[in-house]
Design a protein around this nucleic acid. Structure first.
Lengths: 159, 159
DNA sequence: TAAAACAGGACTAGAATGGTCCCCAATCAT
DNA sequence: ATGATTGGGGACCATTCTAGTCCTGTTTTA
């Protein structure tokens, strides 16, 4: 239903935990597991994906663990989702089949791309640091206008 | 992967087909099935959901079928997705459990809501008519500024 | 060299999705 | 009236995806 997966949710919890400390701080997987209440193997799985995507870096060996590659402010929500779930797009498209070729569908694809871009834009506009910050902290907030859609206006929107 | 389901995709193909004719035109499910290349039972299933949501209306009996409730321009993409998949939200939230209560996660929920709203805004800004229109038809286009996010700016966005 | 900690991937159980089918209700033509 | 047509509702199964665990290997440091 247009949801992020549980694993991705865990990723945000774990990263949120890491974002509280100094951003160079190294956390062992087991440490993050107890800190967040998520099982160790699951935390490990999530961190592996984040490592491959360059969101965190890993340090092997006895005093090893994981650390953020960048300050939390410099990692976007889109990056994290992409790391765990692949490209952010609401339609498959390009996977063809369908009756896409037939007649109807394919006309619409170009427009879907605009929608995908708008969603991507929304997710790129928010950083890890923003998520960690309490919702009521309106101190340094700034209004970010998102990408605009270039499409004919829908005159009357339902619901 | 933040995708709409196949059923929802079918809904757009079927509605696209209907949107080409006069908007009062009545199409039997079987007719739409052959017109789109989708199996009859599947088309029926999709149309049932759309009927319940008030996107199309059904006419029973011998010369019955389905017709759009409104001109295509007045039905948004968000409405269609909502009809087939329920509320549009990227996170579950409110389903609790997690370690949500514990410490980390719950701080972030308020901010997730803003993200959800932005996505919803993008999907509400586009109508069925927009999707059907060929992507290159830039005749009557208008740039629609989407909802803005009120959050601290992410200084450097990766990817 | 042994212990600590990550890397990679195999594997299983459970849930969600996609698709089909069946029986009932409504409507219309004859 | 009656029967053909068409949608309504929901059950049902097969397949795929997801979540979560575990095992074996590699790297690093004390």
């Amino acid at each position: 239903m247009i949801r992020i997966s549980k694993l991705t949710d865990y990723a945000f919890i774990v990263l949120g935990h890491m974002a509280r400390g100094r951003h160079e701080a190294v956390y062992a997987a087991a440490e993050l597991a107890t800190g967040t209440g998520i099982a160790v193997p699951t935390v490990s799985k999530v961190l592996k994906s984040l490592t491959r995507a360059g969101v965190v870096r890993s340090l092997r060996g006895v005093r090893g663990g994981y650390a953020l590659c960048r300050p939390a402010r410099e990692t976007s929500v889109a990056t994290v989702i992409h790391a765990l779930e692949g490209p952010i797009a609401i339609t498959e498209c390009g996977i063809a089949e369908h009756q896409c070729n037939q007649s109807d569908a394919c006309h619409t694809r170009g427009n879907w791309d605009l929608i995908n871009q708008a969603i991507r834009g929304a997710l790129e506009s928010v950083s890890l640091a923003d998520l960690v910050r309490p919702p009521n902290d309106h101190g340094a907030e700034v209004s970010i206008p998102l990408t605009s859609l270039t499409l004919p206006r829908a005159t009357e929107l339902t619901e």
